[in-house]
């Protein structure tokens, strides 16, 4: 993914301008202190704080698009950097006492910058709440971006195992049932060979979207591996899960996928298996049982087609 740095040249310009202005003003209006008067420890402390602030600023500029929250965070950090820079220059340059320049920068700009930054964080929090709502059905109570699948933006099998283990604890303590659905796409290998890996990945991504569109807010879908997906139905009996699973399969069957170089759409067939908490004691055994049943279903389907 490309960085957003190119969207913020204006802000980078503002930062450089602010720091240059402060530097020039100090050099122009003040006199350098004697070597013995300089406190190197203070310079180290303030310098490293400035370095960290610049680092945070660069992360914000690289990762965030334009917008109100970005502006608040960036200008707050610029103000804080400017105040910190003045504080650091104060250690090596003596400004005339009558000049209020350094007091304005250090003592007035800094609180303003922190207030702006604070408001920016508040807005960032609101933004995250909104993003969290969008991630429903893809995430439950725990975020780990390194566990995200690059093709479908769903979490991977490891994440699902953690969530299943969590639900099993609830089952053991409160007898809250859970059901697990495993789906895979039939003849996905043939599809890849006919239309290429790029269209294959696109099919997986869109299949993932259709699955998540057909889930309740409390459910969780993950990509298991290859063309296989796992859906967790927490606090759901098998009978209810059967209804939800049928709806997902039906949605997938009616999904007309358009490969890049094909004239007609392709319709997806899938195999599924559904189990509940009785099929194992832990996530590993539950998923193994579900996969076993899926293999059996596929074999039966293959045999009936051959017949």
């Amino acid at each position: 993914m490309k960085s957003h740095l190119s969207l913020h040249f204006g802000k980078i310009g503002a930062l450089l301008f602010a720091l240059s202005l402060i530097g020039a003003a100090n050099i122009g209006l003040g006199k350098p202190k004697n070597f013995q008067e300089v406190s190197w420890i203070d310079i180290l402390g303030e310098g490293s704080t400035l370095g960290l602030m610049l680092m945070f600023l660069s992360f914000v500029l690289i990762s965030r698009p334009r917008g109100r929250v970005t502006n608040l965070l960036v200008y707050g950090l610029i103000g804080f950097c400017a105040a910190n820079f003045q504080d650091m220059l104060d250690e090596i340059i003596r400004l005339p006492t009558a000049l209020l320049f350094d007091d304005i920068i250090e003592s007035m700009l800094a609180p303003l910058a922190v207030m702006t930054l604070g408001y920016g964080f508040f807005q960032w929090n609101q933004e995250q709440v909104s993003i969290n709502k969008n991630l429903q059905c893809r995430e439950r109570f725990y975020r780990e971006h390194s566990a995200l699948d690059y093709v479908t933006d769903l979490y991977t099998a490891l994440y699902m195992k953690q969530q299943i283990d969590r639900e099993l604890v609830l089952y053991q303590s409160d007898l809250q049932p859970l059901s697990i659905l495993v789906i895979d796409i039939e003849n996905f290998g043939d599809f890849n060979r006919r239309y290429g890996l790029e269209d294959g990945d696109r099919l997986l991504a869109q299949t993932a979207k259709i699955i998540t569109l057909n889930l309740r807010a409390s459910d969780l879908a993950c990509r298991y591996a290859g063309d296989r997906f796992v859906v967790l139905f927490p606090a759901t009996h098998l009978i209810d899960a059967q209804v939800y699973s049928a709806e997902i399969v039906n949605a997938l069957k009616n999904f007309a996928f358009k490969p890049s170089n094909a004239v007609r759409s392709e319709f997806v067939d899938c195999n599924m298996s559904l189990i509940d908490h009785r099929f194992g004691n832990d996530a590993e055994s539950l998923l193994r049982s579900a996969n076993n049943r899926l293999e059996l279903e596929k074999r039966k389907s293959h045999e009936s087609k051959a017949a």
Partner: peptide
């Protein structure tokens, strides 16, 4: 070749991986 791949047992000369999902999906259970 239309040979069913359901009656195959795989012996792997390695420790059970932390995440066996891919092996289960591609090779079987």
């Amino acid at each position: 070749c239309d040979i069913p791949n359901t009656g195959i047992t795989f012996f792997l000369n390695m420790d059970s991986p932390v995440d066996s999902a891919a092996l289960q999906t591609y090779l079987g259970c």
